[in-house]
Nucleic acid binder design. Structure first.
Length: 270
DNA sequence: AACGAATTCAACCGCCGGACG
DNA sequence: CCGTCCGGCGGTTGAATTCGT
């Protein structure tokens, strides 16, 4: 009858990932690359659903992820893109290097939505709220494909005069024009990850790993771990594998520098 | 200091669409 | 053309954390 579950529910673990699981997943992907997520749990020795593995990797473990809150420029870009694309978070995320759709979605729901409401802007339609009230349920209830009723409201920044289509919405930043490319430039200039790292706020792979940042040494022993060096070895080895080996062909010099920085940090931690 | 409320965000769920036999 | 499989997406949930009283 119903659709088969994506994976055998029996014996499949759910909930937060442990450092040990992360480690297994990372070392598997670094060794074998991203392929056939369904088979990953079995091959990596994880009692997880393949979907869960993919999600964990793309949303949290990928070495090219930025951490921390979105910058002002990024936030502005998200608002702009949302106005034209609607809740197509993956499309929006594709325009924000190092950010995931989940992260942007969460940020939208927790921060940007409120911000816009405070400013008197409807976060759904991007119209002023009082105007929205006049139109009442016209746009609510079943608000049309978002891109259709959004792009007309905003000044076109893409030059073409048409909304971003599915097909071209994933284009790399270089293809952006006008304000967007400007915004992306400023995002790149900001490069929050670097400042994040340099501020000594701990490693890029934070929380679940429970690395011993200053004053938090206890968790490692508890988890049966050994040291920063040992557990971050995988990350430091990224360059040994070569980013192309695990699907980060889009790495550019900046990201390579990032990995170098991580390596330096790794050695500094010793 | 203690408690409840509010907020945040990692993770899950179910659906959709493309690829493939 | 049809059915199945799989990856990806967007919406939602709930545990953990923060904030206010």
């Amino acid at each position: 009858m119903g659709r088969q579950p994506c994976c055998d529910k029996l014996g499949v673990k759910k909930g937060p990932w442990t450092a040990e699981e992360d480690k297994k997943l990372i070392s598997f992907i670094l060794t074998n690359g991203q392929c056939c997520w369904r088979a990953v749990p079995k091959l990596a020795g994880l009692r997880r659903c393949g979907k869960s593995c993919r999600l964990r990797w793309t949303n949290y473990l990928r070495p090219d992820l930025k951490r921390g809150l979105l910058t002002e420029a990024e936030e502005q870009l998200v608002i702009d893109l949302h106005a034209r694309l609607g809740n197509r978070w993956s499309k929006i995320a594709a325009r924000l290097p190092g950010r995931t759709d989940n992260e942007i979605k969460n940020h939208w729901n927790t921060h940007i939505k409120k911000k816009l409401l405070k400013m008197g802007i409807d976060p759904v339609t991007h119209e002023p709220l009082h105007k929205e009230n006049k139109a009442t349920e016209k746009s609510h209830g079943d608000h049309l494909p978002e891109s259709e009723n959004h792009h007309v409201q905003l000044p076109e920044t893409s030059g073409s005069g048409t909304a971003i289509s599915e097909e071209n919405s994933c284009s790399p930043p270089e293809n952006c024009s006008g304000d967007e490319s400007h915004l992306l430039d400023s995002i790149c200039d900001d490069f929050p990850l670097m400042s994040f790292l340099l501020e000594d706020q701990g490693p890029i792979v934070d929380a679940p790993w429970e690395f011993p940042s200053a004053g938090q040494k206890q968790t490692f022993d508890d988890a049966g771990m050994t040291s920063w060096d040992e557990d971050c070895g995988w990350l430091l080895n990224c360059q040994d594998f070569g980013v192309h080996d695990f699907g980060f062909d889009s790495f550019n010099d900046r990201e390579t520098n990032m990995l170098n920085t991580i390596e330096i940090m790794g050695s500094n931690k010793q």
